[in-house]
């Protein structure tokens, strides 16, 4: 008896691995941003404020960009978007 339903496509295993790697990178970037922020709040000075503005927020912005990209990829993979 033939199977009337078409064979289901298997999900690509490489994409979740890439997403996990991207999330790992984003987490590391976020930790760098948080570390600089803690230093800025605990030992305020013009130099620490500059490092916070450039390194801290820059690192966190990059982390957020990667995080949002992973979310978008995940939503497209699930055909939500």
């Amino acid at each position: 008896m033939s199977d009337p339903s078409p064979p289901e496509a298997k999900p690509a295993p490489a994409e979740p691995r890439r997403s996990i790697l991207a999330l790992t990178i984003a987490c590391v970037l976020a930790l760098v941003g948080l570390a600089v922020t803690v230093l800025h709040l605990a030992w305020p000075s013009p130099l620490m404020f500059t490092l916070f503005m450039v390194v801290g927020q820059g690192s966190f912005a990059a982390a957020m960009a990667v995080y949002l990209a992973v979310i978008l990829v995940d939503l497209r993979r699930r055909k939500v978007l």
Partner: peptide
């Protein structure tokens, strides 16, 4: 841990 709390932290830092 990645979005809500750090965003608030950055805002407070600013």
């Amino acid at each position: 841990g990645f979005f809500l709390l750090p965003s608030t932290t950055m805002l407070l830092g600013n």
